[in-house]
Nucleic acid binder design. Structure first.
Ligand SMILES: [Mn+2]
Ligand SMILES: [Mn+2]
Ligand SMILES: [Mn+2]
Ligand SMILES: [Mn+2]
Lengths: 219, 219
DNA sequence: TAATTTTGTTAGCCTATTCTAACTTTTTAG
DNA sequence: CTAAAAAGTTAGAATAGGCTAACAAAATTA
């Protein structure tokens, strides 16, 4: 059984591996977890001893098959929890991450399979991220960043890349949530700011920074 | 903020203090937590430094006012969780204790107040134990042990003293649950075994050991 | 290629929580 | 009122996770 701390390292490696196919550096993992490099190195040796990470001095870190699966199963619990908190407990999508960060470590298969059942076996979490299945398999749909769309495109918000309280509260303030349809009115060439319209919002201006963090489905 | 381990010590002291008005011995606390006496001693010194326990060498242990309140608030979270798991997630009353033992340590006031709200501010948990209020105040109703009742008494099951999986599964097997009304048919003088009737069970024999762990309301 | 900078590792130390062995105080028996 | 037993404490060590300082390797720069 992995400890809470070990699980958090596995998750971090899993996330960072998405952008770094050839492995994750100690530096990057250290920054991500806000844990000093020497501590990370020693934990990597420990996880290597448990066959969860392939570790070789000075080489990029890679999760093993086993480590990948265990990481995905923690992420599964995290995302199921977030979905449960939003759907069944009516907490805001900006509140649930921090709670899920803790509940994901609860040791109780029945608890999570009951959540799954009550939710009707959801495929995505409240932020649009896919929930890995019981075998740790996860498939990302091919979404586009809003920042990459063109004028007059009509799109549906499918997922948010950043799940920080601040970003989600920003979106709440503009009534932007998953499933919302919007049309791109104009794009400012100078700074890539996009003006969109949706529902009662006939002209909402979104910065490039924001648009890069919104994944959409095109029609 | 108290650690998970500290919270478990506080809870244990709180429970053991109920029967031991004059304080809890290191021995008893050690046995209860299955942690060796020297470890308990050092934790008591630590909790004393935090003003949660009154500790004096060789004297019985007592929670301070502050310690009592913090313990009660952890118990509140434990019992709210158990109630939530039974009422909203449809888990069995024999399954919820182990999960609540973990969830009680989650740091998130909103999570627990939402639970409380969704449950309609319950006063008791699924085992009939009172849920402390937000100030840590808890009142036990004056129930009787089934073992202390007389022939022909009609009683309602109000609480179970033992909340182990085994005991509750034993009760499940006999369709005994909170709120059940039963009538005492006879009491065997030799071993205090009690024969009761209820619903479709016209003659169920319960050992003294079992009857001592069932709290009832008399009619 | 040689010097620098960046990244990664080692060594040594810290806190939290636990343990065993040895010693001390209290309690209980006789 | 002693002497043995029980309960409690002290000392020393272990494990999990973290940190800093110093050193080493790899990657960059010049
Ligand atoms: Mn999250
Ligand atoms: Mn976590
Ligand atoms: Mn319980
Ligand atoms: Mn607990």
């Amino acid at each position: 059984m992995n400890s809470q701390v070990e699980e958090n390292y596995l998750k971090a490696l899993f996330y960072l591996s998405i952008d770094n196919e050839d492995g994750v550096s100690v530096k990057v993992l250290s920054k991500h977890l806000d844990i000093k490099m020497p501590t990370v190195t020693s934990m990597m040796k420990k996880l290597a001893a448990k066959h969860l990470v392939n570790y070789e001095s000075y080489k990029p870190l890679k999760l093993t098959e086993k480590g990948t699966k265990e990481a995905a199963l923690v992420i599964r619990k995290h995302r199921l929890t977030e979905m449960y908190l939003v759907e069944k407990m009516h907490l805001g999508w900006e509140q649930v991450h921090d709670i899920a960060e803790q509940i994901e470590h609860i040791k109780s298969p029945e608890f999570f399979s009951k959540m799954d059942e009550l939710l009707g076996y959801p495929k995505i979490d409240p932020h649009g991220s896919p929930i890995p299945d019981k075998n740790g398999k996860m498939v990302w749909k091919a979404y586009n960043k809003l920042s990459e769309c063109k004028v007059n495109d009509t799109v549906k918000i499918a997922a948010v890349i950043n799940t920080s309280d601040e970003f989600l509260t920003f979106l709440n303030g503009r009534d932007i949530s998953l499933g919302l349809e919007m049309t791109i009115q104009s794009i400012e060439q100078f700074d890539n700011t996009i003006v969109v319209s949706y529902n009662k919002h006939s002209s909402e201006t979104l910065s490039h920074r924001v648009c890069e963090r919104l994944l959409v489905e095109k029609y």
